[in-house]
Computed example of a mutant assay.
Amino acid sequence: MTRYALGIEYDGGEFLGWQRLSKPGEPDPGSLQAALEHALSFVADAPIDTVCAGRTDAGVHAACQVVHFDSDAAREPRGWMLGVTSRLPPAMCVRWCLPVADDFHARFSARARRYRYRLLNRPVRPALERQYLSWERRPLDAAAMHRAAQALLGEQDFSAFRTVHCQAPHARRDMQAIAVRREGEQVVFELQANAFLHHMVRNIVGSLLEVGAGERPEAWIGEVLRGRDRTLAGPTAPPEGLTFLGPRYGPEWGLPAEVLL
């Protein structure tokens, strides 16, 4: 058996999220994992199970989701990449495939994960790129949101920013970097942490928007964090603007530069 790592790109708008919604081999109503495993199994001519670096919700996109799987099928990495992509829906592709060490694990070997949230800030909703942009009609102060967001840095309890449906055993996460900037009519949020909770990024963005619109002071974000109460935070931002940029690994795994720390 050889273990392979894949870099997967997808538009999540057509899917119900990453996680398989049925048992292997059974019809699946629309998960990304099921679509990938179906394509991999066709190329391998045998059932294939996958493990991803981080599960994304319905409507969330990925620039480079990392997945690993094991197979004894005699295929070159290029054959996996092109063969699997040919069997995937148009909204998914395999960007790269590499054989990796047997102890590589897409989830547990990752040291960090990065997300980007893009929002159009103008009075009129978007027509172009609307599937990749959220929208806020209220004028936003990106600099104020950036300053407020710095209260989230470091290892802290993020209970205030996770959904009640989150299944993580605890809410402590290490926020390694967070930035908010304006690019013309767009506001861009970028976050990197060792791991994220369910809806954590979207709940943070939704709360920062309250600050950016002038409805809350900058210090409020820190107060919400310390309160550890989801009901005190802002609303959950829509999924369209969120893209999982990918996990980050140490150089010992020999993966492409875009997923290395």
Rank of each mutant, 00 (worst) to 15 (best):
G241N: 00
L128R: 10
A46M: 01
S109M: 03
L225N: 05
P247M: 02
F69Y: 08
L208D: 00
E76G: 06
A34K: 11
C93F: 11
L21R: 06
L261M: 12
Q167V: 11
L88E: 06
H38F: 05
A74C: 12
V100M: 12
A149K: 00
R181K: 06
D70Q: 12
S41F: 05
F158T: 03
L40C: 04
Y249A: 00
S22W: 10
E185I: 15
R202T: 15
L98K: 01
A5N: 00
F42A: 13
L119D: 05
S109V: 13
M175G: 01
H199E: 00
R202N: 10
S134I: 14
L153S: 13
P90V: 03
F189Y: 09
L225S: 13
R138C: 03
R113K: 15
P27R: 15
W18C: 02
A127G: 00
Y4T: 10
L232H: 12
F158K: 00
E185L: 11
H61S: 01
Q186N: 02
A101C: 14
L133I: 15
E210R: 07
P169Q: 04
M200Y: 09
R172V: 15
L208F: 01
E76Y: 01
A144T: 05
T50F: 06
A149I: 15
A219M: 06
T231I: 05
S207H: 01
V94F: 05
L32P: 07
A46Q: 14
R248T: 14
W220V: 09
D141N: 07
E185H: 12
K23W: 10
C93P: 07
Q156E: 03
R228Y: 15
P169V: 00
L36Y: 01
A58H: 05
W220A: 11
L208Y: 12
T56D: 12
Q33I: 02
A219L: 09
W96P: 03
Q186V: 15
Q65R: 10
A74E: 14
Q19Y: 02
R162N: 04
S41I: 14
L242T: 11
Q186L: 05
V187T: 07
V43Y: 10
R147V: 10
V188I: 02
R182V: 13
M200Q: 08
A144D: 06
G212M: 03
E129M: 11
A127I: 03
F15L: 02
P99N: 03
V211H: 00
L16Y: 01
F244S: 06
D174P: 09
P126Y: 11
L21I: 04
I48A: 10
D49E: 01
Y249K: 09
M145F: 09
A73L: 10
